[in-house]
Design a protein around this nucleic acid. Structure first.
Length: 148
DNA sequence: GCATTTGTGGCTT
DNA sequence: AAGCCACAAATGC
């Protein structure tokens, strides 16, 4: 299968994702702008809807590497738009340790699609795989889109 | 109140 | 199998 790398230029930055025509295999948040987006795929539709300030049904994502990531994905998707959960909350929800959550989230191949940016530390901003600025940007965006 | 240490469970190599 | 980690809660100061 040919997983093509698409680039989506969002108001918050450039997002690169891999779409093989059926499922979204990976998502990567870039630091700088990239080439103009070109394909018509559910991923792009979702991104468009998301950055429009709303939520949309996720495209078909690649299956998680482990069952745990599946649960983690569900737990993350359960977080409402514009809200944030702590690692401890998610960890407790999954019945695991907070540290495992950090690793699992960090190993998450599909950031943004899976709202891992909505997961913050209990007493701090936490971290982000694709750069803390993205997390901050996304949270600020969601915060402004909802209550404003 | 802030700094350090330990407990913890999954992920990467 | 061993090391690493995007945390949290409990001490120590």
């Amino acid at each position: 299968m040919k997983d093509e790398a698409f680039s989506y230029v969002s108001p918050l930055g450039a997002v690169s994702y891999r779409w093989d025509g059926k499922v979204c295999r990976a998502v990567h948040l870039l630091a700088a702008a990239a080439s103009a987006p070109r394909g018509h795929d559910p991923v792009r539709a979702w991104l468009d809807a998301y950055f429009a300030g709303g939520s949309a049904p996720l495209p078909r994502l690649a299956e998680p590497r482990s069952p745990f990531q599946s649960a983690m994905r569900a737990a993350l998707l359960a977080i409402p738009f514009g809200e944030t959960r702590s690692y401890g909350e998610i960890a407790a929800s999954l019945g695991t340790a907070p540290r495992a959550m950090g690793q699992a989230l960090g190993a998450n191949p599909l950031p943004l699609l899976i709202p891992c940016h909505r997961v913050v530390a209990a007493h701090g901003p936490g971290g982000f795989s694709c750069g803390p600025e993205w997390k901050r940007r996304l949270l600020a965006f969601e915060s402004g889109s909802t209550g404003l």
